[in-house]
Write a protein that binds this DNA or RNA. Structure first.
Length: 187
DNA sequence: CAGTGGATGCTCT
DNA sequence: GAGCATCCACTGT
């Protein structure tokens, strides 16, 4: 398993997103296998970068291979991986993991024993891994992040994205086929 | 299981 | 002041 470098992310966000399914993300040694993501291109009305650069989305306009972390609904944090060349302002939202490392830590942070619910949803992923706005802009190829690619391409399911109103019909949600760790079933 | 509503804070028009 | 890339608890089947 090879570490994911900046080159991996310096491609179309619609190519990177499905390629992340089956990869592993660790944060301070805690994390698991990516089983669900969503792609957000800057030409997409649902993307935070759609309306242009602002203080919040500035990291999306920076180089690929960095973490864009934002607060959602005033309560939760959500983790994205910046893709494409600098200025493209595209990113992949990490929506769900199959927990593989640091289960005890995740259960403590999430106050749940149910393994299936530890990382099933973008807010839950950040809570379980201990990611907050302080980590916005961190590079993904160095600690505390550790990303490794999958060995072989798994079967991937595609669907519409969750919780958005603009461009809601676009099939830019990707999941590991048959995984019970996704945030919602794929139709 | 499906549907509803509350919590909560920040960003941008 | 509106609108969120959410989660949880609670209701009713």
């Amino acid at each position: 398993m090879a570490a994911l470098t900046r080159d991996f992310f310096n491609r179309s966000v619609h190519a990177v997103a499905p390629d992340l399914i089956g990869a592993t993300v660790l944060f301070n040694g805690v994390g698991g296998e990516i089983v669900e993501v969503e792609a957000y291109h800057h030409t997409d009305p649902a993307a935070h970068s759609y309306g242009g650069r602002t203080p919040r989305n500035a990291v999306m306009f920076g180089p690929p291979g960095h973490a864009y972390v934002y607060r959602s609904y005033g309560i939760h944090w959500c983790l994205n991986f910046v893709c494409e060349q600098e200025g493209s302002a595209s990113a992949v939202l990490i929506r769900a993991l199959r927990p593989t490392a640091g289960l005890r830590t995740m259960r403590r942070r999430r106050r749940t024993l149910d393994e299936r619910l530890l990382c099933a949803g973008p807010g839950r992923v950040c809570q379980a891994l201990g990611i907050t706005g302080r980590h916005n802009g961190l590079a993904l190829d160095s600690l505390p992040f550790a990303l490794t690619g999958r060995d072989a391409a798994p079967a991937i399911t595609v669907g519409v994205r969750i919780g958005i109103t603009k461009a809601a019909e676009q099939p830019w949600r990707y999941g590991l086929a048959g995984s019970r760790f996704v945030s919602k079933p794929f139709r």
